[in-house]
């Protein structure tokens, strides 16, 4: 039950830490002062805790921290590592696709994943893919617009 040492790549950098098995990925990221992934509903439904593990989106609140041992973890903070916002982040700003901003990193990361899988998404594709991201401020109409704008910007 004691902490174990894990080695993984975090936003492009090799890192190492000791952590107990009962802690989740959001808690692990907090140790590295990465706060963009937030546990809110705690059930994988709201998407506020979205993190990429080996390039695939997971709910950080439903993912054991020790499972990233040997893997590559990427968070919202990595999107502007080169100093420039990603096209998705810019589209979210341009379309006013958020209010309080608490769920926004999750929506942004999921939109990147959506556009990777489906570069020119229909409304139906957007609705299906973002079904697991909730926004209590209900900026959904603006979010749909932002996804389309980001898709257009990428082509």
């Amino acid at each position: 039950m004691s902490a174990r040492t894990i080695n993984f790549t975090l936003n492009g950098q090799a890192v190492s830490t000791a952590i107990e098995p009962h802690r989740n990925l959001v808690e692990l990221l907090q140790r590295f002062d990465l706060l963009g992934a937030r546990e809110s509903c705690g059930q994988g439904l709201c998407g506020c805790c979205t993190v990429l593990v080996d390039g695939v989106a997971v709910s950080g609140c439903l993912y054991f921290a020790v499972w990233v041992d040997g893997k590559s973890v990427s968070t919202v903070e990595h999107l502007d590592a080169d100093g420039a916002l990603s096209n998705v982040q810019q589209a979210f700003i341009d379309c006013g696709a958020f209010q309080c901003g608490f769920c926004t990193p999750g929506f942004v990361l999921m939109t990147h994943q959506l556009l990777k899988d489906c570069p020119d998404p229909s409304d139906e594709d957007i609705r299906d893919y973002l079904a697991g991201n909730l926004c209590r401020c209900a900026a959904y109409p603006e979010i749909i617009e932002a996804v389309k704008r980001a898709a257009k910007a990428a082509t």
């Binding site: 994988g44 439904l45 998407g47 979205t50 695939v56 989106a57 997971v58 709910s59 439903l62 993912y63 999921m110 994943q113 299906d128 893919y129 079904a131 697991g132 991201n133």
Partner: peptide, 12 residues
């Protein structure tokens, strides 16, 4: 599968 839970859950 497309409408099962959400993509993050399906990934894991």
């Amino acid at each position: 599968l497309r409408r099962l839970s959400n993509p993050r859950v399906r990934n894991v």
